[in-house]
Each structure stands twice: as structure tokens, then as C-alpha cells.
């Protein structure tokens, strides 16, 4: 409740936002997450330090199980970090707050008993926005991803790509400062991925939000990211942070440039270590 009021407060002051444009808006300070399991504590994320500027797009890649989702959940306040803290504009993120950071989950998590429209309006419903208004807003958002005809359908009646788009606009409905995207294109085939990627590009990148995208696709990571964070496993840590300097938004042609190809090759080499199971060099 308290956080809600504060978040509206800083939203009402765009000047404060602008003044911080140069520095880091989102600071991940020595964040580590342990899970307690039947066998004892399990370190999913050892230690991650990262400063992210307003409007920045950060891709995260890494082998399965290296703690990407865990880290993302921590950034959004869903899993309190065991060590360190996450700060947004000087304020520690303690619990989830959709106005600040909204999720697109790895499994979409649309509620099967609600229509697409009401799924998209879920966050607005929790905020107490009236039924008529939130439905009108959800309908507008569905239109931007060409789902207006499916407003009254249930998630089971939608294809994977349609569910994914619904989950994206559900997060956008919160107009958050940070969008946390956990493999949003994961379940899709190559063709749909590319098509959706191009569609989402406009929606996502013209908004000036911080975007953090987890992906298994090196192409996606390089194409989207201002930076690519490469994570390693056992326990989860940041192996390397790679800058991609080409200005965004990027056209599909960017995939043919030397920067793209070189970056992709470098990431491929890094991830080959994971496949070979080579021990990480100790730091």
C-alpha cells in the first residue's frame, strides 16, 4: 500500500526521472538468492551486480537452470534476495509493485477462468480501476496486438503466440517503469518469434521503459539488447556483460552487420563452454 503511493508520487514528477537519465535508474547490488530445499540451502544466484540506466534494454542469456528467472523475480520484488538489494531510483524494491516493474512470465500464466480481456485487465482490477474503464483500456491494448476479436475468448482458445501477446499487453497495461520479460518468445517457432519480435519492437521500445529480457536465442539477445548479460551456472553468476553499441530501434538489417555477427559469434563461443561442461575460470 505504502509503495503504491510512493510510486505514483515519483511518476508524477517526470523531471526527477529526466535528471537521472544519465546515471543508473535500476541498481542491482550484490544480489544473491538461496532456496531452502529438502536437502538444505541451494544457491540459485550467487552474486549479481548490475546498473541499468533509464530506457535501457538488457538481455540476459545463460544455460538452463543458471538462475535467470530467479534473478528476474528478485528484481521485480517477487523473491526477496537473500543477499544484497535491488534499488529503483534510490528506493529499495521490497515487494512486487506492478506500476514499477511488471512481469511477462515464462509460462505466460494467463488465468484459464478469465477471458482474454479480463486477463489483460487483471492488474487494473487489483488497482481498483472500475470495470468499465479497465475493460476499455484492455480492449485498446488488445487492439494494438490484433487480439480484439479474442477479447471474450478464454486462454485455452488462443494459440501460444496469442497468449504471449496477451501476457505482454497485460504487463503494458500497468504502464510500468520496468518490464521484465522471461523468455516471452520461448514457446514459439522461429518464424513466429521473428514476426512477434518485430511487432513487439514498436510497442516495447518506444516507451522509454527499462526492459530486461531473458532469452535462449543469441540472435534475440544481440538484436534487442543495449547490453547482453551472460550468466553462468552452479551457482548462478554473471560471466560477462557485453555492450551492443548500435542505436535502437534496430532494423532487421542490423542482423547482417559486422557488430551483430561478431557479437553473436562471441556469445556462441562463451556458451560453448557451458555445453562442453568446462569449468569456469575462478575469479
Amino acid at each position: 500500500m505504502n509503495g503504491k503511493a510512493q510510486s505514483t508520487a515519483y511518476k508524477a514528477e517526470p523531471s526527477a526521472q529526466n535528471s537521472e537519465q544519465g546515471g543508473a535508474a535500476l541498481t542491482i547490488k550484490g544480489v544473491g538468492v538461496d532456496y531452502s530445499t529438502a536437502e538444505g540451502t541451494f544457491t540459485a544466484v550467487e552474486r549479481v551486480d548490475l546498473d541499468i540506466a533509464a530506457g535501457e534494454f538488457v538481455s540476459i542469456i545463460g544455460p538452463s537452470g543458471c538462475g535467470k528467472s530467479t534473478l528476474l523475480h528478485s528484481i521485480g520484488g517477487l523473491i526477496p534476495p537473500t543477499r544484497g538489494e535491488v534499488e529503483f531510483r534510490g528506493e529499495v524494491i521490497g515487494e512486487p509493485h506492478p506500476d514499477r516493474a511488471a512481469f511477462v512470465f515464462q509460462d505466460y500464466s494467463l488465468l484459464p477462468w478469465k477471458t482474454t480481456l479480463d486477463n489483460v485487465a487483471l492488474g487494473l482490477q487489483f488497482k481498483g480501476v472500475s470495470k468499465g474503464e479497465r475493460r476499455a483500456r484492455a480492449r485498446d491494448l488488445l487492439r494494438t496486438v490484433r487480439l480484439e476479436a479474442f477479447a471474450n475468448s478464454y486462454p485455452a482458445e488462443l494459440s501460444g503466440g496469442m497468449q504471449q501477446r496477451a501476457a505482454v499487453v497485460r504487463a503494458l497495461a500497468m504502464d510500468p517503469d520496468i518490464l521484465l520479460l522471461d523468455e516471452p518468445f520461448g514457446a514459439l517457432d522461429e518464424h513466429s518469434r521473428r514476426q512477434l519480435g518485430v511487432e513487439m519492437a514498436e510497442l516495447l521500445t518506444t516507451t522509454g521503459k527499462i526492459l530486461i529480457l531473458i532469452t535462449h536465442s543469441l540472435d534475440e539477445a544481440v538484436f534487442w539488447g543495449d547490453r547482453v548479460v551472460v550468466m553462468g551456472a552452479s551457482p548462478g553468476h554473471v560471466k560477462e556483460v557485453m555492450e551492443i553499441s548500435a542505436p535502437r530501434p534496430r532494423a532487421v538489417d542490423f542482423m547482417l552487420t559486422d557488430e551483430f555477427v561478431d557479437a553473436r559469434r562471441h556469445l556462441l563461443e562463451l556458451s560453448r563452454h557451458d555445453l562442453d561442461g568446462e569449468p569456469e575460470p575462478a575469479e
Binding site: K4, G76, P98, A102, F105, S109, L111, W113, K127, M174
Partner: peptide, 24 residues
């Protein structure tokens, strides 16, 4: 995952009970 979704989208304890848990 539905509980996690509710929390992520700002559900209060009551909203979690009524809109998420009861629905499920």
C-alpha cells in the same frame, strides 16, 4: 504460478483469495 501472478500484479491478500485462489 497463479498465486505468483496475483502477487506480481499487485493483488492484496483479499484479492488474492477472491480473484485468484477462489477462481482457481
Amino acid at each position: 504460478k497463479f498465486v505468483r501472478l496475483g502477487k506480481a500484479f499487485g493483488a492484496s491478500k483479499r484479492q488474492l483469495d477472491v480473484s485468484i485462489k477462489l477462481g482457481a
